[in-house]
């Protein structure tokens, strides 16, 4: 579907405003990646029980993990389409779009490097 011009390993994704050791040549503007996911009802039941006793809800941590992975991979896919070399100033935001489902949203600035 996507004509990938650069392999994923080449894409630097950083939360600071520059890629260390490299210089930015062009600012391509904002890119974002979003993921809306849920676990299944079984994990929801476990989580409800966990809510009684406290402690880490691993199944939901895993949900965030999966969603974040997908958001980042979509973010880089979008940057790759613009022929970018790196994404700087990456931030994350979350929202609850539906009950028991999480949206993880990653955004950053696509840049070309010298």
């Amino acid at each position: 579907m996507t004509n990938t011009t650069k392999p994923a390993a080449d894409m630097a994704v950083v939360t600071i405003s520059h890629v260390p050791g490299r210089e930015i040549s062009e600012n391509l503007g904002i890119v974002f990646g979003s993921s809306v996911r849920s676990r299944s009802f079984l994990f929801d039941i476990f989580a409800t029980f966990k809510n009684l006793f406290g402690g880490e809800v691993r199944s939901y941590t895993r949900l965030l993990e999966d969603a974040q992975q997908e958001a980042i991979s979509r973010l880089t896919a979008q940057a790759r389409k613009m022929d970018a070399d790196a994404i700087v100033d990456v931030h994350f935001a979350t929202s609850q779009v539906a009950y028991k489902a999480a949206e993880i949203f990653a955004y950053g600035t696509a840049v070309r490097l010298k």
């Binding site: 979003s34 299944s40 994990f43 929801d44 779009v97 539906a98 009950y99 489902a101």
Partner: peptide, 19 residues
């Protein structure tokens, strides 16, 4: 979304809306 949450996975219907 409720059906999807029961089963788990991507909420395709909401992806377009959040974007």
């Amino acid at each position: 979304a409720r059906l999807r949450i029961f089963v788990g996975g991507r909420l395709a219907a909401h992806e377009a809306a959040v974007i």
